[in-house]
């Protein structure tokens, strides 16, 4: 499954006073099994972009090709596309509506017209995938905690068995422990190896630790695209477009500007610690040798 986006343009509310070019000549390719972070501040076009991936929005010009098929399609083919690319919206728990967690997770597979047995397998598997215990399945989703509700909502998309899972701000509004739990759950979903995962966020700190590749959007354009190291080597530019770069990345820039000879492409505490300890060693050795 490859996602291919060619010369994609999208205009928001054309012909109205609010007309705005939301996406401007986007060209991207995402291969099978990639773990991609899509970053940008509000209004950068990242949410508009992901809604093109399962045909919720259609390009005004250009193409979005999923696994060889254009998203500009209808009927059965569109349905297949929707289950190929699973999209988890921001605050997905706001879309829960069934009486029980089980029924809510089963909503997607039911729409696919699957057999009862198959649905049952998928619901239980999806629940396990997001770390929901079996006994929650019979409860009302509205009696659960915020973090649990979000897991139910994510399971509701995973039960469609998509090849590509897109999550829009999955940690929004959670406390630090909740954020941590959801992120490590997403990591474990990716590690199971069945899905390409695209994580949409404005928090560099959250995303940088998980993904391999980062795509940064700004004003409807792709601003940067590369490995996490490559993207973070442009730390100052990222800050200029309103993104909050991890604090240690800023720290390392500061240390370099104060004359320390270290690699500044650091974005996790762990890497920062390693880099600094190595540097301290070098300083000590240098002193002994002198």
């Amino acid at each position: 499954m490859a996602i291919k986006i060619e010369n994609l343009d999208y205009i928001y509310m054309p012909g109205s006073p609010f007309e705005k070019k939301a996406l401007d000549n986007i060209n991207l390719q995402i291969d099978d099994g990639e773990f991609v972070g899509l970053i940008g501040h509000t209004g950068s076009g990242k949410s508009t972009l992901v809604q093109h991936l399962n045909g919720l929005l259609k390009p005004h010009s250009g193409n979005v090709i999923i696994n060889g098929y254009s998203t500009d399609t209808k009927g059965e083919e569109l349905k297949r596309l929707r289950c190929d690319v699973g999209l988890v919206f921001q605050y997905p728990e706001h879309q829960l509506f069934e009486e029980t967690v089980y029924k809510d997770i089963a909503f997607g597979p039911q729409n696919l017209g699957l057999s009862k047995e198959e649905i049952d397998v998928r619901v239980r598997d999806a629940a396990r995938c997001v770390g929901l215990p079996e006994d929650v399945l019979d409860k009302s989703p509205f009696d659960l905690s915020g973090g649990q509700k979000r897991r139910v909502a994510i399971a509701g998309v995973i039960s469609m068995r998509p090849n590509v899972l897109v999550l829009d701000e999955p940690t929004a509004g959670l406390d630090p422990a909740g954020r941590e739990a959801i992120l490590s759950q997403i990591k474990s979903i990716y590690d199971e190896g069945n899905m390409t995962v695209i994580l949409v966020s404005h928090s560099m700190e959250d995303v940088a630790r998980l993904v391999k590749r980062l795509i940064v959007m700004n004003e409807g354009k792709v601003f940067a695209d590369g490995t996490v190291e490559e993207v973070f080597s442009r730390g100052a530019e990222l800050r200029n477009i309103g993104l909050n770069v991890p604090q240690v990345n800023i720290l390392f820039d500061e240390l370099v500007s104060r004359g320390m000879d270290i690699n500044s492409n650091v974005y996790t505490v762990e890497a920062a610690k390693r880099e600094l300890l190595a540097y301290f060693e070098k300083v000590k050795e240098g002193k002994e040798n002198a």
């Binding site: 919720l56 349905k79 929707r82 706001h94 909503f107 997607g108 729409n111 509701g156 998309v157 469609m160």
Partner: peptide, 29 residues
Amino acid sequence: IKAQKARGASFDTGSIFKRAKALIPMLVP
């Protein structure tokens, strides 16, 4: 509507009865 569509819901096909029923996943939330 978009979120439920992403879960395979359709709001614009089928008989009137089916369409009315399809509104539940939108109206409850």
